[in-house]
Amino acid sequence: MNSAPSTIISRFLQSRIVWPLAGLALLLLFNFVFDRAFFEVSTRDGNFYGPMLTVMRLSVVVMLLAMGMTLVIATGGVDLSVGSVMAIVGTLTAFLAVKHHLSFPSLLGVAISVSLAIGVFNGVLISCVGIQPIVVTLIMMVLGRGVALNITGGSPLQVVDSGVLFLGKSFIVGVPVQIFLVVLVFAITVILCRKTAIGLFVEAVGDNETASRLSGVNARGIKVLVYIFSAVCAALAALVSIGDAGSVDPDGLGQMLELDAITAVVVGGTVLTGGRFTLLGSLIGALLIQTLATTLIRQGMDSAYAPVPKALVILVVCLLQSQKFRAQIASLIGNFRKPTS
């Protein structure tokens, strides 16, 4: 074997985002072979339109959740409350717009304030009181759903605010607005994490909290910060989701999306035990999940069995990410080759 290509390949293989990218490429290849119409892009009223764009647009909600979830998971925690935060924020903003005719800036203010409060609640109970993240956020998940249901008595509500509808339905230079939003949030997060010390602190807390505290990192502050960030991301996701759907169902909004967000993070290459993280990987993970969902719908897969291929794809990507698994496969192949060659 030549040494030059093998180093490039090995360096490529060491990058965390290579496996979710490989999974995505496989799915696209499947569609290229069996469903060429998947790639059709047309313009209507100057806006781009087509299955691929729909996939990108629909994956924005989980992308936003996954960015918050990435930082939480990097500190060694988890946030199960994001789906319920979406339900509270979505229902409350729709309700205030219908009943009290609040303007979009006020609605945005309410959405951010409510999510800030929930983030502080989660963060303080976890970092200052010392309750496990899964317990605190599970409480908030159950409580939040109840709060959301009580705002309207569980009935669905129309979304009437033009600002919220703009976030979910409109286009800028032919591209859906929410794609710009997710790029903006991603850019800000990456700058904050990589150009300041915050990202380093998050990884330090996730790697070894005690050591990071002893070396002067404000571990508690960092933890509260990531839960606040996660809740704010969920609030933005809620606005995008209800703007897109045009109405709110308090019992269904955001339900189970916390699991999709966690899946996106894990598939994207961030390990659940905390430490190093990749925001880009999580975005690719979210895109992978949505591409898969759309592919299954287009293939007419019976909904009762659709979770099976979803689980398989996730399993394969996670296995490929495991160095140990790759080493075992490599040695298997090696053993197989020796006698023949």
């Binding site: 729909t54 909600v61 109405s247 007419g300 659709a306």
Partner: peptide, 23 residues
């Protein structure tokens, strides 16, 4: 011509319909 679950949810109902209308 197509039957898919929307989980009784608004957002999922929209996603499935949007995809099926494209198809």
């Amino acid at each position: 011509i197509a039957a898919q679950s929307g989980d009784f949810k608004t957002a999922k109902g929209k996603e499935v319909t949007e995809t099926l209308l494209q198809k």
